[in-house]
Each structure stands twice: as C-alpha cells, then as structure tokens.
Design a protein around this nucleic acid. Structure first.
Lengths: 169, 169
DNA sequence: GCATAGTATCTCGCCCGGCGAGATACTCGC
DNA sequence: GCGAGTATCTCGCCGGGCGAGATACTATGC
C-alpha cells in the first residue's frame, strides 16, 4: 500500500494536520467563549478591518464570510448581544451601519492568537535566515496552489449530477 | 501601529492565509458535491481509516469529528443516502456497525486532494533537501504549538463568566 | 441457562445558524 | 420631488447538531 507512489507526502500531511488542528482549536475556543465558529471568523475579520483602518460594515463582513444579508444580520445580533461589537449608524450615509469593535473582542482575539503568534515567532528563532526564507517561499507557493485550486473550475467527480448552480459564486 | 512590535509576522500571516483558503476551498468543494463541510471531513476521516486498514465505525468517526451519537447517525445517514458509504453489521460483535467506503467517496477524495497534493509535491522540487528539511522542521514545530494550545487550559479573556462546562471535552 | 452490567448504535424532540424573499430606510441623479 | 439603486433588517423555513432515552447486543457472575 505504501510502496507504490512514493513521492514525499510528509509536507502534505503536516500541512493537513496543522489545518485540522487549527480548526479544532478555533472551534473549541469559540465554544468556550459562547460563540459559533462563524462568530469567531467574523471577529477576526472585524479585527483585521480595524487594524487596517477600514471601517467594517455588515455588508463587508457578510461578503467576506460568504453569508447572505439575513445571516449577516443574525450574526451581528449575536456579536452585539455578547458585547463584542456595536452598531453605529454612519452619519454620512445613513443607510450604512458601521461596526465598532469593543474592547472585549480585541481581548478575545489576543487570547486566541496571542499564544499562537508568540509561539510561532519564538520557533522562528531556532531557524537561520536562509531557512526562514525557504519556509516563507514554500508557504507562499502553497498559498498560490490553494488559491489556484479555488479559482479553478469545479472539476466534479464522476457520476455527479450538475448541482444546478448557474450563479455558483 | 505597525512600527512598534516588529517581530516577523509574515510566517504567521501566511499560515493563517493558507488555513483560511483551505477551509474555503473545502467548503466550496463540499457544496459543489452536495455535502456539508462536516460530511467532507467525515469522508477524509473514513478514507484515512481505510488506508490505515482500521475498520471505521460510527463511534470512531463521531469521536474524531467531535459529534455526539445522534449527530453521527445523522451524518452517516446523509453519507449513505449519497452513496459514499455503506453500513455493514460486524458479524463478530453485532452491536457494531462497520463503515464500508464506496468507490465514489474515494473518487471524491482524490478529486479534492489530488490537485493539492500534486501541486505541493511539485513545489517541493523547487527546493533543496536542506530547505525541505527546514520546512518540515518548521511545520512540525507549528504543529506542536497548535497541539499545545489545544491541550492548554481554557485561558478565558477578562470578564467572561464561566461557561459552566465541567465536562468540557 | 439467566440476570446484571456495560457498550454501540439509533430514535425523538428541540435549538439555532443560515437561506430566500421581501420590507424598510436611505442616497443619488434627473 | 420622483424613480432607481443600495444597505440593512424582518419573516418563514430548512436542516445540522445536541441531550435524553430506547434498543440491541456482548461479557460476566451465579
């Protein structure tokens, strides 16, 4: 079984293991803080926007998470109820709602990412510059591959009827 | 904002980007094939078991995905209805159900992972052995960090009431 | 053999996240 | 001001997942 196609799959398996573990970690963390995985993803998204100086709006968040407007409203209701975010009417365009990230959301983000980040940064110190460069180059390539796959057409396995999604995005 | 804590976060961001993209890819792939992300994860799990020669059972799959028995049953119902898996009573211990993976599930798995795997393997050819070793070492370390975080205690952010989960795992 | 405990899976009723459709409130160009 | 366009919210529904309990089986002691 293992002696036929011998390309080196160790990297693939490591990548997969990391992804899986990271997802589980996120899920557990979310649950501990009484929120849905989606809510955590939304927070990440909000924090990113805050750091980038871009004012976050329901529309943006929804788009980034792939939710429709109803789902987005519900998501923000949850986040607001938990005090992670506050809706503020934009005074310039009063159709819009701006999302103000609360302290506690920032704290949550740090509690989640902080240890991971510092762990990874520390790990980096055990590597030489050329090694780090190689890692970055590799990860960049992987990123490209995944993005490419995502862009590539559906390539459905045999025997699957068309899902009838003319609008599929 | 960006000139105060300058540790090199490029690796962190790359890792995060890969994870996010991979999740989105999985989600899209799942949807195209009429299954829930959870179903896809279950398939992966089943295929792993099949390759490892371990007979998969509902209990195992459920445990690995963090579902309770009711959810697991529903999951397998869906998978069986779609023809990805078949339930077979274990003749030795007739309480147990063995999960036989169907051809189409294997095909699905290859359609999903095939391109990713070959892409990554090909990418690996642009790297020298020492470089690859560095990447593996780094990924291994990251794996360790994530696992460690998962094992570590809840470390809740300030102001959060205890979720009252004495059985939390 | 039979009663008891333990285990693997399934059934039932519920909760709640997400969707589609439509309502509402607003801005912009005429 | 009026109609078109846009951002968000409301309503009703679907379906995945949970908790509790039922069911079917194995293992053990008598």
């Amino acid at each position: 079984m293992t002696d036929e196609a011998g390309p080196d799959l160790r990297l693939v398996h490591q990548l997969r293991a990391i992804t899986i573990e990271l997802n589980l970690l996120g899920g557990e963390f979310a649950q501990r803080n009484r929120l849905h995985p989606t809510d955590l993803r939304a927070l990440v998204c909000l924090l990113d926007a805050a750091r980038a100086g871009t004012p976050a709006t329901p529309g943006l968040v929804g788009a980034q998470l792939g939710l429709n407007s109803a789902g987005t409203t519900a998501l923000l209701d949850r986040l607001e109820r938990l005090g992670h975010v506050r809706r503020v009417r934009d005074t310039r365009d009063r159709r819009r709602v701006l999302l103000a990230v609360e302290e506690r959301a920032v704290a949550l983000g740090q509690a989640f990412f902080g240890p991971l980040i510092s762990g990874i940064v520390e790990t980096g110190q055990d590597f030489s510059e050329p090694e780090l460069a190689a890692v970055r180059r590799f990860l960049g390539a992987v990123q490209g591959i995944v993005a490419e796959q995502r862009a590539a057409a559906p390539e459905r396995p045999p025997g699957t009827p068309s899902p009838a999604d003319p609008t599929a995005g």
